[in-house]
């Protein structure tokens, strides 16, 4: 770390006026945040065998028969 450079950067920041977030920029950032939540799409394939859904193995997410393990949640998909 070059502390002298960091010190100058922090000092200039403290003395500078607040950044200007216009309505245009604000809503563009909101749009980016919105996109963040759908940036990763995981596609799963499944077949119905004997009336029961069976997921095909996926490298993205752990599946077992009709179950998806997502974080600490177990999602069970039933065919109605």
């Amino acid at each position: 770390m070059n502390k002298a450079r960091m010190d100058k950067m922090f000092h200039d920041f403290i003395q500078r006026d607040e950044e200007q977030i216009t309505p245009d920029l604000f809503f563009q950032i909101l749009a980016e945040i919105e996109r963040e939540h759908v940036e990763k799409t995981v596609e799963l394939r499944a077949k119905v065998i004997g009336g029961k859904l069976r997921f095909e193995p996926s490298p993205e997410v752990f599946v077992h028969e009709n179950e998806i393990l997502w974080g600490n949640q177990r999602i069970v998909v039933q065919v109605s």
Binding site: Q20, L25, Q28, I29, A31
Partner: peptide
């Protein structure tokens, strides 16, 4: 760090990254 150097130069995508 770019936020501290000059937040006016951040693109909307960089803003999102800075916040996260």
């Amino acid at each position: 760090l770019k936020y501290f150097e000059d937040a006016g130069q951040l693109t909307p995508r960089e803003w999102k990254t800075a916040l996260s």
